[in-house]
Amino acid sequence: MGSEVSSAVGEPVISSSGLVKRFADFEAVRGIDFQVRRGEAFGFLGPNGAGKSSTMRMVSCMSPRTGGDLRVLGMDPDTHGPAIRARIGLVPQEDNLDRELTVRQNLHVYGRYFGLTRKQVRAKAVELIEFARLTDRADHEVEPLSGGMKRRLTIARALVNDPEVLLLDEPTTGLDPQARHLLWEKLFALKQRGVTLIITTHYMDEAEQLCDRLVVMDAGKIVDEGSPAELIARHVTREVLELRFSPGDQHNAVDAVLDLADRVEVLPDRLLLYTADGDKAAACAHDRGVRPTSTLVRRSTLEDVFLRLTGRTLVD
């Protein structure tokens, strides 16, 4: 039957309701509800200051909540912090490796904090060094390693206790494309092994690649939730037609194209036409005498959803 196993696979490993985090006079998280099921890859998307990292810190039991309810692996982080941390892995935004130790020593030392025996950490380190593709550097100090190598080691270190839930706070920020793709591959492999992944990111391609389900956060609240495809279907059209102009000229063309799309967005150097059929809209615009300097038809992405939901204003 396997009914026990199947019930375990779908059960929520994290659930929150009305979760609030307040710092002095600033409310970083303003009452959010979400559930993460065992084995899924769940994303928190949002601009800087949306409350993603504060949420992650509460889930990883490093920050007590101000209000609402939160359960991680069925336990309350306020009272069972160490027990929860023993079973999860945390990849912080900034690498906090011991740069004066070797790659291997970083894994040994950290693994011991999780109650692993010396024999266990030695074996685990060999496995993780291979996983992180750092075999050549295993006994080198961490300091001179590249950003991508340090990031992989940070992720490997978070896996030392075979966590059931791996929390990754902006895992690929600052990495080059090769390093990012290698990391995605590693994260996908973990998911295959049944590890629940929780990822914060402001890279839309990353969220589309990795997440089964995600929430979009803005100003401390969840503004929508769903799979990447669902969110795209709900908030934007299938395609986007970009008409580029010399800055200023785009305003003259707005009236002519307004009825060609579900929605038209005016940017400083272009018009974005959200439409089911970009090529057809482009042909119509041309027939009406609209002459942009260049035209581009592309698929809608999560980025369009993101900008729709959280606006184009720069948040710092």
């Binding site: 039957m1 696979v9 941390r85 079973r87 011991r112 904090y113 109650g115 692993l116 075979d162 966590p163």
Partner: peptide
Amino acid sequence: MTATVEQPIAVATGVVVRPWRAVLLRIE
């Protein structure tokens, strides 16, 4: 009944160590 039975479940190996052991591990 469901199709998810094939999916493996991760089981963590980490445990909470006793307070004095935690102190000794950090010193280590």
